[in-house]
Amino acid sequence: MSNHAKPLSIRDALYEQPGPRTRRRVAIGTAVSAVLALIGIGLIVRQFYITGQLAPRYWTFLAQPTTWLYLLQGFRGTVSVALTSGVLALILGLLLMLGRTSGIKPLSAVCRVVTDFFRGVPSLLLIYFFFLVVPQYGIKLSSFWMITLPVTLAASGVLAEVMRAGVNAVPRGQVEAAMSLGMRPARIMFKIVLPQAIRFVIPSLISQLVVVVKDTTVAYVVSYPDLMQNARVLITNYDALVSMYFTVAIIYILLNYAINKLSGFVAERMGVKIIR
């Protein structure tokens, strides 16, 4: 068992090398569970069929390029909200983290409260705040900012904590060494701690983008034309609700899956762990 090319995963390590009887049992179990899984898939397809959802009129519009162009437009909306929020949240999160670790008591307390607040409030509540409450004070925001700002705030709390975890991962001895060399706290932070901390958390920051993308899907509340909103328009045009919603869901799943894979890939290359 010792000369495996790949390190043994814990999943496989749990089981001994099977003997003939176990091997037979596993084979039977595999066959039975495969059949059960296929029956499950079959039942789902059958439900689609008997309710008429497999009828071509629900699916042919997906073959038209205009459909995909329109969805692509929405996708661009999603990406621009997600990236803007991501960048703004990165800056805000960094400021919150710096404030919290600054050692100035009042500033640190304020940043802590703000961080915990944005982490403890659902992003939908923040979206309603910008959609319903902010206009009451006579502030007019475009629908882009009405979705981008709440998503930014919700993400900044989490990012601040992720970056703080990165700062804590920098060995304490380095800070002490820098202090004994007579460096000032701010200089230590920016020259020694932060460059390493950021490196530690890059994969975690990438994986947080998934949360941002998920949060942007409520853009229809403020009628911002993102992927979901454009899909809703297509649904009213083609009267094809089930097929459209499933298609859009798959697009989102693939996008987020890709982001997670990228984060895992970067983490492996840099040899760091993903903090969630």
């Binding site: 439900q47 689609f48 309710t51 959802q53 998934v210 993308v213 998920k214 949060d215 899907t217 409520v218 979901m228 609700l241 089930v242 919603y245 499933f246 859009v248 869901a249 989102y252 799943i253 693939l254 996008l255 987020n256 899956y257 997670n260």
Partner: peptide, 21 residues
């Protein structure tokens, strides 16, 4: 873990009734 909550909710609320759920 990758599907947005709203997308899943919309599917369950609006799409599943078309599949008689």
């Amino acid at each position: 873990r990758n599907i947005p909550g709203v997308a899943l909710l919309i599917i369950i609320v609006y799409a599943l009734p078309n599949l008689r759920v």
